[in-house]
Every structure is written in structure tokens, then in C-alpha cells.
Computed example of a mutant assay.
Amino acid sequence: MRLPPLVPYAGEGLEPDGDYDGVRFDGVDLADASGRGARFMDCALDGCALDRTELGRARFIDSVLTGVRGVGTDLAEASLRDVEVVDARLGGVQLHGAVLERVVVRGGKIDYLNLRKARLKDVVFEGCVLSEPDFGDAHLVRVEFRDCVLKRADFSAVRMESVDLRTVAELDIARGVDRLAGAVISPAQLMELAPAFAAQIGVRVEA
């Protein structure tokens, strides 16, 4: 993504319902800041701390988040459109009820990602590690997991349309294996998931 010339952020923290247009947040400590409902357009967040940052219902448009880190970041019901998230190190991120459209998550590691009831459209997870992500009751349309690791993923009540799991490096589904209708998997993944599929429909496999 190409951003226009950006203005360095010179403020402190964030403002609820704030309007940030063409701003670069370079290494800014945003821990415990409250930017609920804020709008970020053509912005770059580089190496920012997002511990417990409140960004519920915030809007990120045409923006890049690189090397952000933090625990307990609140992005519930946020909207991300045309956004890149690169090499993030996050834990316990709340994205339930959020809308992600044309988003790329590349590299990094995100633990306990909460995407319950979220809507994802044209989203790519590439080369990242998602540990215990929760997609419960989410709606995924044209979502690709490319060369990434999914550990203990929860797909309970999820709806999938054109979801590509074929190149997942490690596919570990804790719940919701019965909700993979609409997904594409590889023959090798089919063999790995066969016991879970059999258990789901009540088939006993014995030698």
C-alpha cells in the first residue's frame, strides 16, 4: 500500500471520535489511550504500543500498521478497510463484531484473537501465527490463510464462502470442524482432519 506524505504525530494519547488524516504514529506509546470511534485515514502506525488501547468502533481506512504490539487491545465493532497489518505482536485482541474488508495480515503473531460475529471479506492472513483464534459465528467471504499457522482455532457457528485453507502450514481446529462447508482444503489436510470428520458424524474407525 502506498501512502501519501504523512505528518508526524505530535500529540499525546488519542481522542474519542478523533479524526486522524495522513498522520504517522512512529513508536508512539498508546497504551491505555482511548480513541473509541476515532477515524484513521491514510495513516501509518509504526512500532506503537497498543496495550489496553480502546479503539472500539474506530475506523481504519487506507492505513498500514507495522510492528504494533500490545495486550488487550479493544477493537470491538471496528471497521478496517484497505488496511495492512504487518509483523504485529498482539495478545487478546478484541475484534468481535468488527468488519474487515480488503485487509492483509502479514507476519507476526496474534494470540487469542477474538473475531466472534465479525465479518471478513477479501481478507488474507499470510505467514502469521494465530494462536487460539475465535471465529465463532463470524462470516468469512473470500478469505485466504496463506502459509500461516492456526493453533486451536474455533470455527463454531462460522459461515464460510470461498475460504482457502490449502496452504495453511499448520491447521489445528479445536471446535467447528463441521462448519468447514464453503472452505477449500488440500488432500493432505483432508487426511489429517478425517478423524475429526468421522467423530462429527458418529463414525467409529477401528482396525
Rank of each mutant, 00 (worst) to 15 (best):
G108T: 07
K117Y: 05
D134W: 05
D147L: 12
G107D: 01
L165P: 14
F145D: 05
D134K: 13
R152C: 01
V124W: 03
E144S: 14
R159V: 14
M160H: 09
V104K: 08
V158S: 13
L150Q: 00
V141W: 11
R142M: 09
D172C: 13
A118K: 00
S131C: 08
I173H: 05
G127N: 14
V123N: 05
V141L: 09
F125T: 07
L130K: 02
L115V: 08
R142N: 14
S156Y: 12
L120D: 12
A118I: 00
R152M: 06
L150I: 01
A169T: 15
F155P: 01
D172I: 04
K109L: 10
S156Q: 14
R116F: 03
L115D: 06
D137L: 01
D137N: 07
I173P: 03
R166F: 09
E144P: 00
K117Q: 09
G108H: 03
P133N: 05
D137Y: 03
E126Y: 10
G108C: 04
V129K: 10
F155V: 00
D134I: 15
V129Y: 04
V168T: 08
G108M: 08
S162E: 15
L165Y: 09
V124I: 11
L115W: 08
L140V: 08
H139N: 08
H139L: 13
H139Y: 11
G107A: 05
G108I: 07
F145H: 04
R152V: 04
D154V: 13
V105Y: 11
V168S: 06
A169I: 14
E132F: 06
D134P: 03
D147S: 14
T167Y: 09
E132V: 14
L115Y: 07
V158C: 11
T167A: 11
L171K: 04
F135N: 04
E144H: 11
V123M: 02
I173Q: 13
I173K: 05
R119H: 09
Y112S: 14
V149H: 06
E170C: 11
N114K: 07
Y112Q: 12
L140S: 09
F135D: 03
I110Q: 09
S156L: 05
V141S: 15
K151L: 13
L140C: 12
L113Y: 08
D164A: 07
D122G: 00
